[in-house]
Design a protein around this nucleic acid. Structure first.
Length: 531
RNA sequence: GGCUCCGUCGUCUAGCGGUUUAGGACGCCGCCCUCUCAAGGCGGAGGUCGAGGGUUCGAAUCCCUUCGGAGCUACCA
């Protein structure tokens, strides 16, 4: 299965164990970007040797995450390729072949020590000798014939790598860490094949990388210490050692390895929280790599066109969600209305559903800032149908919402709360705090302002256009001797229910005159008891 | 314990012996803009480059020591 290796071949090999971890995603991005930058081939290989978790469904989860990030692979599941199959479970034959080769070369030997025996020895060594030095090579001394007869008798055994005696330091080049050297004496006669015949990780990766013609192994830092062991396997196999590139760890805000305790750790979670794939890729690319030290926002094309291993840092990086949010906001500003509508679908549907069918107008208590975020009820089929109908009837309306929130959103989810008022029809939910601060404020003349603005909005002579309505309302300030702020904030509250909202007249323009007037009337009635 | 790696503003980073009074970005503070909130513009605080020794005319950049952090040390991957 020797591959013609012309050019760069890199691979990302995730285990389908549930979700695509942030660290894994970055590894995938670096492999992908490196392949694209060098005109090489990006291969996706599924490490599905754990039968417990490697379900069809979990494989799909990984694939979906890769697709969501828009990391296209040249060879792998669904697209095939000449170096396949791309599932380790389907490559068992290649591992068996490799073992045979090692046996023939005398580079592997059977070991009959049981797990229990080894655990005991390890425990003892840790107590008495101040540390376990690795397998004591008991079975390596076994007579070949004796070993064979025990195998023939069906005695359980594993196959170990016979680390060469007097092997000088094990050295290899790492594109990130530079020249690496490990003393061979501390290398364990590691297990290659387990007693059940399955290959261990270190053996399987080497076989795969050899057979797939991988030229650059770009992977997590946690494999750095595994690398000399793997180099030994390459040597035993008589194969050239690829270039390695180890990526530093991604840490949580507390400086500890990123884990569930830090909150969201999978790309799926970020997707569900309204993050854009472009922002994720841009942000993750910058976690350990830089273009020039200055550029922060960069497109996939720029990343792919300029990615290089020699600008990858060795230092562990803390995952700073604040910066990710900022970056996401930058991408939301640039994405455009139609894409925004398409991607904001779930949250727009929620915003729509809250206002449908229209509820009554009322003052509602201001939510506590430390609200216990409860999982929202999923929308019913009915609600979805109603939303779909509404969108079909007013597609332009939905696109017009984009400029209202584009530069105010840091995540797509925010449109649900920020735009809720746009779906209230003739009703308004008045935020209690806003009512007290704006409408009921002593000496603010809010009621007077509201009546005046209402008159402008009610005047059929005024075109229902943002610029016209805004100008006419602002013209009220002078005769009334009011500050714009005092004049318009009451209108904002009466219309949107809150003292903080997206642009006022731009919003009003998108709704019907009768609904806007109805809201003002409801507000006047509820707050001031006047009509 | 052993092996290995890392250490520049709070965070992501630039820096590869002199062009550096250590640059950019997020965050923070202030000002401007302004009907709110944002966005945007401008400005500011914040690192003496983990510490201590060298080498050198000159070091964040080279060497040594030291401290701190991390990874590996499985019939897990």
């Amino acid at each position: 299965m020797a591959q013609p290796t012309s050019g760069v071949r890199v691979r990302f090999a995730p285990s389908p164990t549930g979700r695509l971890h942030i660290g894994g995603a970055r590894t995938a991005i670096y492999n992908w970007a490196f392949a694209r930058a060098t005109g090489g081939t990006f291969i996706l290989l599924i490490e599905d040797t754990d039968p417990e978790r490697s379900t069809e469904e979990n494989v799909q989860v990984i694939l979906n995450a890769m697709k969501w990030l828009e990391l296209d692979w040249d060879e792998g599941p669904e697209v095939g390729g000449e170096a396949g199959p791309y599932f380790q479970m389907q490559r068992m034959g290649t591992y068996a072949d490799a073992l045979e080769q090692l046996k023939a070369a005398g580079a592997a030997y059977p070991c009959f020590c049981t797990k229990e025996e080894l655990d005991q020895k390890r425990a003892l060594a840790e107590k008495t000798e101040g540390g376990y030095a690795g397998y004591d090579r008991t079975c390596r001394a076994l007579d070949e014939k004796e070993a064979q007869s025990r195998i023939d008798a069906g005695e359980p055994h594993v196959w170990r790598l016979a680390v060469p005696e007097n092997h000088g330091p094990i050295e290899f080049e790492d594109a990130v860490y530079g020249h690496m050297s490990f003393p061979a004496e501390v290398m364990d006669d590691m297990i290659l094949v387990r007693s059940d015949g399955s290959p261990t990780y270190n053996f399987a990766v080497v076989c795969d990388d050899v057979n797939m013609g991988i030229t650059h192994v770009i992977r997590g830092d946690d494999h750095l210490s595994n690398t000399p062991k793997q180099v030994l396997i390459y040597e035993a196999l008589g194969k050239p050692v690829p270039t390695f590139a180890h990526l530093s760890m991604i840490l949580g805000p507390d400086g500890k390895k990123l884990s569930k305790r830090h909150g969201a750790t999978s790309v799926e979670e970020y997707r569900d929280r309204g993050f854009l794939p472009d922002a994720m890729v841009n942000f993750l690319a910058l976690l350990g790599w830089s273009l020039d030290g200055e550029t922060t926002i960069m497109s996939r094309d720029v990343i792919c066109g300029n990615f290089s291993l020699d600008r990858v840092t060795k230092k562990d990086a803390v995952f700073d969600e604040t910066k990710l949010s900022w970056m996401n906001g930058q991408y939301i500003q640039k994405m455009g209305a139609s894409e925004w509508v398409r991607k904001s679908w779930p949250w727009l549907a929620r915003a729509f559903s809250e206002g449908y069918p229209y509820m009554h107008s009322a003052i509602i208590p201001t939510p506590e800032p430390d609200e216990p975020s409860t999982e929202p009820e999923p929308l019913t089929e009915e609600q979805w149908a109603a939303f779909d109908d509404d969108y079909a009837a007013h597609p332009a309306f939905y696109e017009a919402l984009y400029p209202l929130v584009a530069e105010r959103e840091t995540s797509l989810t925010e449109c649900e709360s920020k735009l809720a008022y746009m779906f209230w029809g003739p009703c308004v939910w008045l935020d209690e705090k806003s009512v007290n601060k704006i409408l009921r404020k002593e000496g603010a003349r809010a009621e007077e302002a509201l009546h005046a603005c209402r008159a402008v909005l009610a005047d059929e002579g005024n075109a229902w256009e943002c610029a016209v309505l805004e100008q006419k309302c602002k013209d009220l300030a002078e005769p009334l001797d009011m500050k714009l702020r005092n004049l318009l904030q009451p209108l904002r509250v009466a219309f949107s229910g809150n003292m903080v909202s997206p642009p006022l007249f731009e919003s009003i323009e998108l709704l019907e005159r009768k609904d806007v007037l109805a809201r003002i009337d409801a507000c006047l009635d509820i707050v001031f008891g006047s009509k």
